[in-house]
Structure formats: C-alpha cells, structure tokens
Simulated scan of single mutants.
Amino acid sequence: MNSALSLPFLVICLVLVQQCDSVGFAPELYCGLENCYDVLEINREEFDKQKLSKAYRALARKHHPDRVKNKEEKILAEERFRVIATAYETLKDEEAKTTYDYYLDHPDQRFYNYYQYYRLRVAPKVDVRLVIVGTILVISLFQYLSAKHKFSEAIEYATGVGKFRNMAIKDGVDRGLLEMDRNGKLKKNKGDNDAIIKQIITENLDVTGGYKKESVYDTLAWHTIIFPLTIFRYIKWTVLWYWRFAIKKEELDDEAKMYLIRKYLGVSQSEFDQRFGTDIDDLFEHECWIKDNCEKWKAEKDAAEQEKMAQSGRYKRYKRYMKNAGTISFVDEE
C-alpha cells in the first residue's frame, strides 16, 4: 500500500520541482549562493591557475578562524574559511572547474548540475594510468607464479620417471655428489639423496610448452615494455619481406619457407617446435610453403592421427599433453 502511494507522491514532487524557479545558485552546491570566482576575488574571464594559489593563501590568512577570539565571530570566520576552501578546491581541479563553469552557464539544468556535482564528490579520483599499471603487474605476477607452479609439477613428475631419475643419478655420481655401493645402490651420505637428484633434474631438464621454467620475459609486463620495439621489428620485417619477395622477386630461402609453413599450419614458433619439430624434412619434401600443399599435408596428417587416437587412448592422452604441455627431456639426452 505504501509503495503504491509513494510513486504518485514522487511524480508530484518532481513536477513541483520542475515548476520552481531553477535559475540561480543552489545553496548546497559548490560555494552556495556565491560565485566561487567572486569568493576568491578572481575575474573568470582572466582566470590564471598560477595566480589561484596566491589568491587563496591571501584570503585564507585573512579569514583564518585562529585569528578571531570572539566565539560568535569565530563561527562566522569558520564558515567563511570553508567557503574559500571550497572555491579553491573547485577551481584548482580541471574537471571540477569545467563542471562548475557549465553550472554557471546553464543554471536552468538543475538536475544535470546536481548529478555532476555529486558525481565528482562521491566518485573516487583514481589515476587511470595507475589502474592500468597495477592491473598489468597483477596479471604478470599471476602469470609468473602460475608458470613457477607448473614447472614444479613437471619437476615432480620427472623425478618419479625412472629414465630421468637414473640419468640424474649417473650425473650425480660422475660429479661426486652421489656414491654407489657394491650392489649398485645409492649410499647414504650427509646430504639428502632425493634432494640432490631433484636438483640435478632441475638443472638439466629441458621443459617446453606450458610447463617450461618460469621467466619474467614471458609476462605481460615485459611484453608491454618491449611493445614499441616489437612493433618496430614487425614493420621492419614486413617491409623487408615485401621488398625481397614482392618487388625484387627473390627466391624463398629456408627461413622464409618455414615462416610460410607455420603461417599455413596456423601455429606459433613454439607450438610448431612441439607438434611438428620432427616433421620438418617431410614438410619440405612436400613443399608445404605452398598453401595448397600445406593444407593437403595437414589433412593427411590429421586423418592419420585421428586413426591412431581411435585405436589407442594412451596415444590420445600423449598428443593432448604434447599440445598443452610441450616436451620434457634432459639437455644432453639424445
């Protein structure tokens, strides 16, 4: 019942407000019934921001409440000092000054002026540049810690794989970090054998793809810093490519052929190394730098892989891992 009555009441209030004389200063906005320029004794047409502070300091000293001892006069001085401070805060801020000038020039737009006034007072003043920098740093930190966690998972996995563990033990024995007894078992020493093996695996393990070792150079912050250089290199590379192969009609070299192959396969350099690194000779043999040849080769390879996936669930898991995680191997592993 109350909600039913409140809506008509609100409409009536709005109509009455619209019918009121809205031209002039609003007591609760800015400097009240005074012009902020007049409060600071500044001519609006000759406004100089450098002189604004000087005018404010002079008036602030003159009307400072501490200069008045009488209680009643002190109250008036405090009110005057507040108006002076409000005028200064309004005119020193570029956005607030623009809004106030609009308020002076369009006093009839009462609702819009109220909105602009309270928007500036309520909305937090945050430098957009700081927000952007902070966002980039947070994302970069998340990327770095996530990569660190994934690399740790790869190390834990490799430590439990017999091939990598045996290679680490052999390397540890050769370096004198581990000792074997007559039965071919590790001797207990002052250090932790498992920790030594894990450290050797960490030093020698070559992990690519999504589980590679964390690096600052893989974060958004670093890529943002070098973005101008990246753009410059891209433009330079594009111009050279057009000059060599479009204007001078040079024959494609192996590097150019590899670029076209990656382009037609739709993969980046790192993804190409993971998925097609062993197929380079086959790609060149089929002249896959030609788009039609590359599409035909890829269709045949995808068909062969789908057939293998259908026959082996293990092979399917392996291909999924290769696509997402990359490869894990010892640096000296042949």
Rank of each mutant, 00 (worst) to 15 (best):
G160I: 02
R67T: 12
A60D: 12
G134H: 06
T208W: 14
K49G: 08
K323G: 05
F276M: 09
Y100T: 04
K97C: 00
T90H: 02
N293M: 08
W297P: 02
V331K: 15
Y102D: 07
L10E: 07
F142P: 01
I197N: 08
V331C: 03
E203D: 11
H64W: 01
E34Y: 14
R119C: 00
Y117P: 03
K248G: 00
G134C: 05
D253W: 03
D181Y: 04
D281N: 12
R82L: 08
R61E: 14
L186A: 07
V128P: 01
V267F: 15
G184V: 11
V173P: 03
E214G: 04
R317N: 13
G326E: 08
I200G: 07
A304Y: 10
G162W: 09
G134K: 05
T327P: 00
L283S: 06
F9Q: 08
P65Y: 02
K291F: 02
K97L: 06
E34W: 09
K236I: 00
E307H: 09
L260S: 02
K188S: 06
I197E: 08
M167N: 14
L178D: 11
P228Q: 03
S312F: 08
G176P: 07
K298V: 07
E300C: 03
Y56L: 04
Y100P: 01
A77H: 03
G32E: 05
I132D: 04
R80A: 05
E334L: 13
K188Q: 15
V17L: 12
D66R: 11
S6T: 14
K49A: 08
D101L: 08
L91R: 05
V133G: 01
T230W: 06
K163R: 12
V11R: 13
K148V: 09
N166K: 15
F245W: 11
Y88M: 06
R314K: 13
Y37N: 05
G277P: 11
P228I: 09
E73P: 00
E251C: 00
C20Y: 05
G210A: 12
L240R: 11
V126Y: 10
C31P: 05
M167R: 15
L91F: 01
Q50A: 12
Y315I: 10
K308G: 04
I12V: 15
A96H: 00
L220S: 08
K213A: 10
K150W: 08
V131C: 02
L205C: 05
L52W: 03
L130V: 14
T238D: 03
R61N: 14
V131P: 03
